[in-house]
């Protein structure tokens, strides 16, 4: 009934979805793990990244010679990273900093911010979706036998792996990353030892938001973009964080690919609607077994 080709294609699509979720959830996992803040505006930061790509594309169309057009995508990734990180930093300094003790309140406030950002995008770019032309080196795909693997999806997979490794390197091999982990594990003790938790919080939030921008950039490869582009992925990305557990990148990776692959398989075997229901049931069932996610951060403190 299911041929080998179909199985491989479904698996590939699952991995591809997983890599998108990973790209989105990385930022969430960092901010949630460190500050216990659920940033509901994360989806809108993705949207910011996507629209930045769109704007840069238009700039290239209008002002750059056509032979350099493909460069726009390479430029937009760092620009999206920086702008989204900047917005994230601003958000942290002006709003989230005051709500650290109240995680549910920060969730609501960031949702309000997300709503404002979304409406701003709608005012500037209009409600209908806009298209971004993929650069020529990412159109087409790799043909392996009878299989066709689009370059764009392979690129996103590669991008998420690069992001993962750079975060890993940053966290485990640099002094600044070590400080972040110190604050994550024991905030008071880190503070006592002279780590400026203020600065660390700001930096971490900026990094998490920056990754949202990169994810937005990547999403333009998959289709048209609109003001609500972030919301369609964000809940799944939250589920990745819930399933993966807090405090370890490994959890986010497993969660992302697990949910991505299961989602695609369920949707392939049943249909899009039932697939969503099934994945929710699986997640609830999974949480019966591992209530605090795949990777638990051990702590002796209760409250």
């Amino acid at each position: 009934m299911f041929g080998l080709n179909e199985i491989i294609i479904t698996l590939f699509n699952g991995i591809s979805l997983g890599s998108i979720l990973l790209l989105i959830a990385l930022g969430l996992a960092i901010t949630f793990g460190l500050m216990n803040v659920i940033n509901m505006a994360h989806g809108e930061l993705i949207m910011v990244g996507a629209y930045i790509t769109y704007v840069i594309q238009n700039l290239f169309v209008n002002y750059a010679p056509p032979e350099y057009f493909d460069l726009y995508f390479i430029i937009s990734i760092p620009v999206a990273l920086i702008v989204a990180a900047g917005i994230g930093m601003l958000l942290e300094v002006s709003l989230i900093r005051h709500l650290y003790k109240r995680p549910l309140d920060s969730l609501l406030a960031t949702w309000g911010i997300g709503l404002i950002l979304q409406q701003t995008a709608r005012s500037i770019f209009g409600a209908p979706n806009v298209g971004v032309t993929s650069p020529s080196f990412l159109t087409g795909g790799l043909e392996v036998g009878t299989l066709f693997l689009p370059y764009s999806r392979l690129f996103i997979l590669g991008l998420s792996i690069v992001c993962l490794f750079s975060i890993f390197y940053y966290f485990y091999r640099t002094a600044s990353g070590r400080r972040i982990r110190a604050v994550m594990q024991n905030r008071q003790m880190a503070e006592c030892l002279g780590v400026s938790t203020r600065k660390v919080d700001m930096l971490t939030f900026a990094i998490g938001s920056g990754f949202a921008g990169v994810a937005g950039c990547a999403l333009t490869l998959l289709g048209a973009i609109g003001p609500t582009i972030g919301t369609s992925y964000i809940i799944d990305a939250f589920m990745v964080v819930v399933v993966g557990g807090v405090g370890a990148l490994f959890g986010a990776v497993t969660g992302a690919f697990g949910i991505g692959i299961l989602n695609t398989v369920f949707e392939y075997v049943t249909n899009a609607t039932l697939g969503k229901v099934l994945i929710f049931v699986v997640i609830i069932a999974f949480l019966q077994w591992r209530p605090s996610g795949l990777v638990m951060s051990r702590s002796r403190s209760l409250d």
């Binding site: 709003l95 609501l108 406030a109 949702w111 309000g112 911010i113 997300g114 709503l115 404002i116 979304q118 409406q119 709608r122």
Partner: peptide
Amino acid sequence: TYFLGLLFV
């Protein structure tokens, strides 16, 4: 929509 967002904050 702006107002709603602002109200939350």
